[in-house]
Simulated scan of single mutants.
Amino acid sequence: MTVTELLGHPIAIGLVAVLIASAAMGLFSSNKHFPVEGRTVLITGGSSGMGKALATKLAQQGANVCIVARTQSKLDQAIEHIKSHAKSPTQRFLAISADCTSPDENMRILAQTTSWNNSQAPDIVWANAGSSSPGLFLDTPLETHRSQMDTNYWASFYLAHATLKLWLAPQQKKEVIKPRHFIITSSSVAFVGVAGYTPYAPAKAALKSLADSLRMELNLYNGSINSSKPSPAAATNIHLVCPGTILSPGYEAENRTKHPVTKILESGDPKQSEDEVADASLRGLQRGDYVITTQWLGHAMRVSALGGSPRNGWGIVDVLFGWVTAVAWLFIAPDMESKVWNWGKEHGCA
């Protein structure tokens, strides 16, 4: 029985539908946690795919948007597209060509954005740069393993370090500033190991651990705002977005090198367009969610792997959904294991 077949059972469908519908209708949280109109948003990996879709939707909502990527020609095309969707003629847009795997480049990105933003730090920073090079652990060159960690972990780490160092500097004079948001794009493979994603998944799992640690650590700084001591100018919220399969040029490139057993394991997974993922991500932020997944299978993977991570909203949906998935994994995990075993039995280790 596959993951889709098991969770497609009528009883499971009914439970999942009630839980997700309740959360989607906002019964467990507010929709006012992520105002963007008039604020400045910096997005890495913003020239294509999910990043470009996010930048476009944020422009539609009235944000000033800065996108970052390596290739200037792609940036130029993307920024024109994003500008064309602006809500107001007063909005401002910037494109920065940079290598996000360099700590110095991330500091330059923040400095250039701050200068362009009338010497004010950006209000929202989204570490979205990344790419997937799937393959079996032993078949993948060590250089690829290293570059996947650089692109998918260190690029976000360096941006987080540079941004939080800027945002959390203590201020003597306290002004009322809306909370800032640092958002990290991870992946649903951060929750569940999948054969053939060993170059990619560890970096995304490391991002979840980084976000969990930062979220707790930031209580120190956010709590200091209510004291008489020097403190940051605004509270800072951390969010982790974990999409599943996104139909994009990147996904097409993945499939050209992806091992057949990986394709079997994810054959029944739901797929989303770039716009659908962007919409779901922004809805989660508006609800004030911490860990945000973008479709039902991602929700199931998230609640079954939360551990000590905070639950979204009041937590009741996550707890109930977690009970469902805890039972489901009794069947799903052996099914996934057997698919990999049978592939080796039938085809050998080639």
Rank of each mutant, 00 (worst) to 15 (best):
P334V: 01
W323K: 12
V317P: 02
M336F: 15
N312A: 01
V317L: 05
P310Q: 06
A333D: 15
L320C: 09
D335A: 15
A326I: 10
L306N: 06
W329T: 10
A328N: 02
L320R: 06
V319G: 05
G313P: 06
G307E: 01
G313S: 05
P310E: 00
W323P: 07
N312R: 02
P310T: 04
S304L: 05
V317F: 08
D335E: 15
S309W: 02
A333G: 13
P334W: 00
L320S: 06
T325R: 14
P334D: 04
G315L: 02
A328E: 06
P334M: 06
S309T: 03
D335F: 13
G315K: 03
T325G: 08
L330R: 14
M336T: 14
V317H: 09
S304P: 06
S309A: 08
T325H: 09
V327A: 13
D318T: 01
V324F: 10
G308C: 06
W314Y: 08
V327F: 11
V327D: 08
V327H: 08
G308A: 11
G322Y: 07
V319W: 13
W314N: 15
W323D: 08
A328V: 05
V327R: 10
V317A: 07
G308V: 08
G313Q: 06
M336N: 15
A328T: 04
L330D: 07
L330W: 11
R311Y: 03
D335M: 12
F331M: 10
L330G: 11
G307A: 07
A326T: 14
G307K: 06
W323Y: 12
A305E: 08
S304M: 08
W323Q: 13
A328G: 10
M336V: 14
A326N: 14
A305I: 03
G322F: 08
G313R: 04
W329S: 09
P334C: 07
G308I: 08
L306M: 11
F321H: 10
A333T: 15
R311M: 05
G315Q: 02
N312K: 04
L320W: 05
V327G: 10
G307Y: 02
S309V: 01
W329V: 08
F331K: 09
V327N: 09
D335H: 15
A305H: 13
G308W: 07
W314E: 09
A333L: 14
T325N: 12
T325I: 11
G322M: 04
G315M: 03
P310D: 01
G322W: 07
V319L: 12
W314L: 14
W314T: 15
A326P: 04
F321I: 03
D335W: 14
G315E: 03
W314P: 00
P334F: 04
L330P: 05
F321P: 05
L330N: 12
L306K: 09
W329E: 12
D335Y: 15
G307F: 01
S304E: 07
V324R: 14
I332F: 02
W314V: 11
G308Q: 11
L320G: 04
G315V: 00
V319K: 12
A333C: 12
R311F: 00
S304Q: 10
G307T: 07
A305R: 13
W314D: 13
V324P: 10
S304K: 09
W329P: 04
A326V: 09
L330C: 12
D318F: 01
I332K: 02
L320D: 06
N312V: 02
S309I: 00
G307Q: 03
V324L: 15
